[in-house]
Design a protein around this nucleic acid. Sequence first.
DNA 1: AACTTTCAGATCGTACATTATTTGTCAACA
DNA 2: TGTTGACAAATAATGTACGATCTGAAAGTT
Lengths: 227, 227
Amino acid sequence: MRHTPLADGDEQGGDTGSSIYERLRDEIISGRVKANERLKVSELASRMGTSTNPIREALQQLRGEGFVLMTQNRGARVRPIDEDFVRDICEIEVLIEPALTRWFVGIATTGDIDDLERVQAEIEALNYADEEKHSDLDLQFHRLMYDRHYNRHAVDLWIRHRQILGAIGRGFPTSLSRQTSVIEEHRQLIACVKAQDAEGASRVIAQHVEGSGRSIIERLRLRKRRG
Amino acid sequence: MRHTPLADGDEQGGDTGSSIYERLRDEIISGRVKANERLKVSELASRMGTSTNPIREALQQLRGEGFVLMTQNRGARVRPIDEDFVRDICEIEVLIEPALTRWFVGIATTGDIDDLERVQAEIEALNYADEEKHSDLDLQFHRLMYDRHYNRHAVDLWIRHRQILGAIGRGFPTSLSRQTSVIEEHRQLIACVKAQDAEGASRVIAQHVEGSGRSIIERLRLRKRRG
DNA sequence: AACTTTCAGATCGTACATTATTTGTCAACA
DNA sequence: TGTTGACAAATAATGTACGATCTGAAAGTT
């Protein structure tokens, strides 16, 4: 399995376990650094306890991924992660995920369905008691469907978008209505796969992604109010 | 220490026109460096006539964009730009571009249609006499439709994918059958916009992208044979 | 008031030190 | 004789330091 889109292996970093890149990215996505704020390399270097070079390279990587905007001799700025950004990503996923799902319906075995049902059972048993654990299970659920798709580029895109959306909502609880929707939609999805109904599965996923987007935007608004 | 301004280099400008990043990216996309080949910073530095830092930063940016793969303490490698890669990108575009087109049909004014027809007239007048000029006109044509879309993320993705596909086929002529298809599809597209037929336009674009993908893969095969 | 000069602060490029990996050599062993 | 394993040297990536250049804005001049 060759997937690893951007995941560089673990880093010894020094201070924390995660790399400079991950720390910076998380600060941007989670909103700890404000939109359009300037990112000065020397300041970041002293704050992270390294020299400037690792910072510069991390910023370039983030630039490539579109999280920071840079201009010649004028440094880097934070790309705003706002409601529009979330909407844009979700709209793209509404197009991509149904296509991935449709393909999965065509190749799914009874073993795959068993796996889905097992994860889904865990999700329902947990019932959002632990946010991080739920997020991990939900990732597993969708990964079971998408991971073996031949279009690695599309899957990598999905993974990256998912990481972004996940980081945005982190720390703010999911609404009850959204919780029930997620579980219901997962069940419908499994039913469609069983019935070999690719069109139905595709529709359910589109609705699932759209609902997820709305939920995240809600949490984004909450975050704005509380800081 | 004065920094040597690439005096001996045969490259133009250098400031913003052809940065290290762009040169490296072009070498990867155009296939001048082989798939999975190792990219050594010191070697690249001497070859490009700079120190290692600009190279490292360019590599990080390319990593963020997915053109090079890096592992800790083991350097960078060229991500293979092969038929699968083209197919993956085109499949994503087959999903995205119809959505962008559908939106355009909804907001197009008569002025927009005039612009489209003017560019299309230029394309037909040129009739593929100049490859680079045609590519530029074709970009203009599609940009007229997509550029004002609210989903900047999707448009950026489209632009990036288009640059990649454009660079892959560069230097190899488009087949005659493809040439006529392109012109025909553009005409159909304009007709659909005029008739406010969003579904039809969407279908035409999907076919357009698919044909483009097939054409590029053909040229990729040609390139492989001739080196 | 508009233009020029000056200067602090930040980015960018170069050189060097450190650390990890790869390579090459050679002896021990089946 | 061919293979394996350990160890040393070479090679390359990563981190640190510093000088050069650019930007932005305040201070000074006409």
